[in-house]
Design a protein around this nucleic acid. Structure first.
Length: 470
DNA sequence: CTATGGCACGGATT
DNA sequence: AATCCGTGCCATAG
């Protein structure tokens, strides 16, 4: 691309590298914050107004031509297009049910969960209880569950437990419903209650199922549960489906995509992608377009007026200004560096994992960060930082952690799922291991068991051939 | 006796 | 240096 002049490079380089590293590891949201604050604190920086591509109306970064429209026609449709995509909203316009639930505590810009809930319940809240409610709300964990015991709160604030309880109830009925519960079970029960109040048919045994058999439920031990509830496994299956589709054990997490994974071993949930992969013009046959989100609506650069003015001001201020200029230029340089690295990384990833992006988990190729680092000629930690804490939105609308691209066993696990989904008689772990070996996936029996657990699949003896799914 | 889950160790990855 | 992951060994349940 383009380099800036290197005048006093030597000692700058370390600072440069350090800052580029930091920027790399930032999430889109965090980057947004960072840029805002830098912009506010340094007068030498300015944001020039947004530029849009005349033909596709896409926001553009810097003065380069639109990466999509100016794409040479000679490119094969197999080549992914990777580019930096500035967006103010940095939420894609795709059909993902986004709820206004920032779960990260970094959001000074957006409304956070506590205030969001507080606002809702304010009308019904006795003003005197406001502080109490606020206290409760600030003690939610990232899943929206209450982490302190009511009794402690009551003692701490010198009020009756019953009063705290009633406030808690108020909170629980606010959006997202169930927030402020002490346990996932409790949250789900509240959600059931609300559903019932809205005349939505709720399976009769759902309440008991959650109360008595949550652990069984989450482990898919339906036959066991059926026994306890004195009903048929089929019925339990239905209840489980209902619960999976309509309830959310962690109120603060939005539940898009397949909710049946809710019981699966913890899959981290993001609401905002840092990178969006799509097909060109939504055309499934078109080449892949990889957008690296830049959470700004224009181009960041050094204010030329400022530079100009540096020459004409009073002596004693010159140093300050020079300093500001220096910082500003370092910052934009680092930002460019970051973007460049991101581009290269995504280019490679998109090529490597295209099958995975297109067809799903079975086609993931096991790639390690170290390998990639070697190919791109960067330090391993660079890749690690670039990957961690970031989320990617796939063409099918799902948002997955970037780290998933480096999962070494995902393809085997999906193969395992496929085998089990198609089995007629429940295979034992040993048999499964053999079957997998036949597919060139050589893993030990013990490992099969672990994979099963990860996928939330029952052991053979508890597994009937009732495993079907919508 | 067979099938699984738990603990812990060693090597690979980050 | 810290962490993750695959495995082997052993205890336990059926």
């Amino acid at each position: 691309m383009f380099q800036l002049q290197n005048q006093s490079t030597r000692h700058l380089t370390t600072a440069h590298l350090a800052q580029t590293m930091t920027l790399l590891s930032l999430t889109a949201e965090e980057l947004h914050q960072k840029i805002e604050s830098e912009l506010a604190s340094n007068p030498a920086l300015e944001m020039v107004e947004e530029r849009r591509c005349p033909s596709c109306n896409r926001l553009l970064q810097s003065s380069e031509p639109c990466p999509i429209c100016s794409r040479p026609k000679t490119l094969e449709s197999t080549d992914p297009i990777v580019f930096i995509s500035p967006r103010e909203d940095f939420v894609s316009g795709s059909p993902i049910p986004q709820e206004d639930l920032p779960e990260d505590n970094i959001g000074a810009a957006t409304e956070d969960l506590p205030t969001y809930v507080l606002r809702q319940i304010a009308p019904e809240l006795d003003p005197g209880d406001r502080a109490l409610a606020a206290y409760l709300l600030t003690h939610l964990d990232e899943d929206g569950l209450l982490q302190v015991s009511l009794i402690e709160v009551a003692q701490y604030h010198h009020v009756l437990v019953s009063r705290v309880e009633s406030i808690k109830r108020l909170i629980q009925h606010a959006e997202p419903i169930g927030v402020g519960s002490a346990t996932p079970e409790e949250a789900m029960l509240i959600q059931l209650e609300v559903l019932a109040a809205e005349n939505i048919p709720v399976p009769p045994l759902a309440v008991q199922a959650i109360e008595k058999g949550m652990s069984l439920l989450s482990r898919h031990q339906y036959s066991e549960l059926a026994h306890i509830l004195k009903t048929s496994p089929k019925n339990v299956q239905e209840i489980a489906n209902f619960i999976g589709n309509n309830l959310n054990p962690f109120p603060a997490r939005s539940h898009w995509g397949d909710s049946r994974e809710s019981a699966k071993s913890e899959e981290q949930v993001f609401h905002r992608p840092d990178i969006v992969i799509n097909h060109l013009n939504e055309d499934p046959l078109g080449p892949l377009v990889v957008e690296i989100i830049m959470p700004i609506s224009g181009t960041l650069r050094i204010n030329p007026m400022f530079r100009q003015a540096t020459k004409e001001i009073h002596e004693e201020k010159v140093d300050d200004w020079k300093n500001a200029l220096e910082r500003a230029s370092l910052f934009v340089k680092c930002l460019q560096q970051r973007n460049h690295t991101m581009e290269r990384l995504m280019m490679r990833i998109a090529g490597l994992q295209k099958e995975f992006i297109l067809h799903g988990e079975g086609d993931l190729k096991p790639v390690t960060r170290a390998q990639l680092a070697k190919e791109l000629e960067v330090h391993e930690s660079t890749i690690s930082r670039a990957v961690s804490n970031k989320a990617i939105q796939l063409p099918n609308g799902r948002i997955v952690p970037f780290a998933k691209f480096f999962d070494r066993s995902l393809h085997i696990r999906t193969a395992l799922q496929v085998i089990i989904a198609a089995e007629t008689k429940p295979y034992s772990d040993t048999e499964l291991a053999e079957l997998l070996a036949g597919m060139d996936y050589h893993v030990a029996r013990r490992t099969v068991a672990k994979y099963r657990a990860m996928e939330g699949i029952l052991p053979a003896h508890l597994r009937h051939k009732t495993v079907n799914r919508s």
